[in-house]
């Protein structure tokens, strides 16, 4: 069976929404992190289809890989819940998220029925510059910003995780 290009795109978008909802609704934190990674993987496929391979590679390696590792590390560094607590959390989550499907269906219906007026969005003439040229020459200042943000993040993590040594030799975090 030949799959239509538009059908494939819409299926991927629906899959992305479904995995996002699953990440939010599931009662287990680990499953939520996996759901988030799944959303990133589907977004990677969408980016590949939209002819953005560099962004797709970044999304897959950094968002689906690195950020999932960070989330799983945070989950493993915090306490795990026992079966009774897990059941209570599950019941609370069902109560809290009972309105989410209603909101989603309502918003989806409203947005689908009423055509969005998002400007003319006419296609411009095809750009001749490649992504690398745009990144290194047109948006060079962005790179400086990225470097500064990474440095700020490194200093932030160092400050948050540094250990203090008191006079009596006791180590505090």
């Amino acid at each position: 069976m030949k799959l239509d290009f538009d059908t494939l795109n819409i299926v991927l978008l629906a899959l992305m929404l479904a995995s996002a909802v699953w990440a939010v609704v599931t009662s287990r934190l680990l499953m939520a992190a996996v759901g988030l990674a799944l959303t990133s993987v589907v977004l990677t496929l969408v980016l590949f289809i939209l002819k953005a391979p560099m962004a797709a590679v970044f999304e897959l390696s950094v968002c689906a890989g690195l950020i999932t590792v960070v989330f799983i590390s945070v989950i493993s560094l915090t306490k795990s819940v026992n079966d009774i607590e897990a059941h209570e959390i599950k019941m609370k989550r069902i109560k809290r998220f009972i309105f989410l499907p209603v909101f989603l269906v309502l918003a989806g219906w409203l947005l689908s029925v009423k055509a969005l007026h998002l400007g003319s969005h006419e296609a411009l003439p095809a750009e001749s510059a490649t992504m690398q040229e745009v990144l290194w020459f047109t948006r060079r200042f962005d790179l400086i910003g990225q470097i500064l943000v990474i440095l700020a993040g490194v200093f932030g993590v160092i400050v948050l995780f540094k250990t203090k040594h008191s006079v009596d030799g006791e180590t505090k975090q």
């Binding site: 980016l47 939209l50 002819k51 953005a52 560099m54 962004a55 970044f58 999304e59 969005h121 006419e122 296609a123 411009l124 003439p125 095809a126 750009e127 510059a129 490649t130 992504m131 040229e133 745009v134 990144l135 047109t138 948006r139 962005d142 910003g145 990225q146």
Partner: peptide
């Protein structure tokens, strides 16, 4: 849509 995929990719990477 706007035929500016290279620029969009740089924004996405940022």
């Amino acid at each position: 849509v706007s035929n500016r995929m290279a620029l969009a990719q740089t924004f996405i990477i940022t």
